[in-house]
């Protein structure tokens, strides 16, 4: 049963790598039409970050929660980079 399911939904799914600021990697499987909110939430919970304190870039461009992989033309095994919040004063 499970195999049939995966076959039917394979076209919509892609795997995305999220690279930490320290260099570690986590791999997510996500539908192309789901928003990134889910991915970011799971990633932050897993790594123990606050959700707002991490910024994500795809090929150097900042990504928002409301966007989907379809909007950004993401392909299988693309890499998303996570950055810590930058603060500067002096």
């Amino acid at each position: 049963m499970s195999q049939e399911k995966t076959e039917s939904t394979e076209n919509n799914q892609i795997t995305l790598k999220v690279v930490d600021p320290q260099g570690g990697e986590t791999v997510f499987r996500i539908r192309k039409t789901t928003k990134f909110t889910k991915l970011f939430k799971v990633y932050c919970e897993r790594k123990g970050y606050q959700i707002g304190s991490i910024k994500f870039t795809f090929d150097g461009i900042l990504i928002d929660e409301d966007q989907t992989p379809d909007e950004l033309d993401m392909e299988d095994e693309d890499i998303i980079e996570a950055h810590l919040r930058q603060v500067g004063g002096f």
């Binding site: 461009i61 966007q67 930058q86």
Partner: peptide
């Protein structure tokens, strides 16, 4: 598609208070 999308939280807005460090 080439454009950054920036989300401003309450934390970022508070960083504009006097004598606070400004966030990215």
């Amino acid at each position: 598609r080439k454009m950054d999308v920036v989300r401003i939280n309450k934390f970022d807005l508070e960083s504009l208070n006097p004598n606070e460090m400004i966030s990215d």
